[in-house]
Nucleic acid binder design. Structure first.
Lengths: 163, 163
DNA sequence: CCAAACTCGTTGCATTTGAAATGATATTGA
DNA sequence: TCAATATCATTTCAAATGCAACGAGTTTGG
């Protein structure tokens, strides 16, 4: 391929970026409209649903968000009463974050909508195609895993493979 | 699926976001290290290579970037001598933007690296799988195309389908 | 012909962002 | 024991972002 043939609209990173942004924004309509959440806040809430009382660091390493971003997301969520921050009982540096009843309620509202959107997208292809789609994504991750210039995957995204 | 079973790491929008960000950052290492470019600047340069002298608006509608972002990217690129801004000859509102020789040289440096990264990723799967991967992406776009809450695709991303 | 409506590119402004620094607490090792 | 080092969460700060507003130019319709 000579440089002159290079085309943005068929370039894999660009195509990924365009689809992701579109999906992401469409999803944000759901959790933004109903509860005024941003993506970081949404991720934190979902993580808490799974993992109970955890630290900022734990969220950071699990949901692909920078530490300050998690910290600020938690601050906002606390202000809105969706999570509770408690000083960790053991290690004095840690902050224990957990869902409140209101937080659980918010998730109960949003998750069905999120799942519905996901199903809309996945129902457009056959199960076989979808399986291949995910396999391809995984292979691309694997390429990056062995690339020293690439950022490592979060432990949780890796862990899923072993299950 | 009850809300309690919901898991971020298998949620399609999240998975897309994680892979995209990883690929994107890895790519940014290439054009950042060698020429100090950001993603908007990279996209603008590539678009210019294809489309010659065009307006800000044209770039905006082609490469999935907000208008102010294009405007500022062009300003920076001009400051670095990679593009030239000329008052359009006809319509006095339009600005004609085109690559300089230095801009072309920069692309000649970067495009092979970008292509190499893309190939690394795509070579990890069979051509059949890759074709399905792209087909699935296209189907998901199609779902969003008929969703009034979703942002429309750029004309150029659509146009590619007809070719 | 000219006023209203539209389009273009830029800028203002408030918010978000991430890297690095900070302050507080824990752990380590001499 | 206690200094040196490491880890945790937050904050600082500069840069990026996106929406809306703006000034300049153009088109439209009466």
């Amino acid at each position: 391929m000579t440089p002159d043939d290079f085309q943005l609209s068929t370039f894999l990173p660009y195509r990924l970026a365009v689809l992701t942004e579109r999906v992401s924004r469409r999803l944000a309509v759901e959790y933004g409209r109903t509860h005024g959440l941003a993506v970081a806040e949404w991720r934190v809430l979902v993580h808490l649903l799974r993992c109970g009382a955890v630290s900022i660091r734990d969220i950071h390493t699990c949901v692909s968000l920078e530490k300050p971003r998690v910290s600020r997301a938690v601050t906002r969520l606390e202000a809105e009463g969706l999570v509770a921050k408690t000083a960790g009982s053991g290690d004095g540096r840690l902050v224990s974050i957990s869902l409140t009843t209101a937080g659980r309620r918010a998730l109960a509202d949003i998750i069905p909508e999120a799942t519905r959107l996901e199903r809309q997208l996945t129902d457009a292809v056959s199960p076989d195609e979808l399986a291949i789609f995910y396999r391809v994504m995984e292979r691309m991750h694997a390429v990056l895993d062995s690339d020293p210039e690439a950022k490592p995957r979060t432990p949780m995204d890796l862990e899923r493979l072993e299950a």
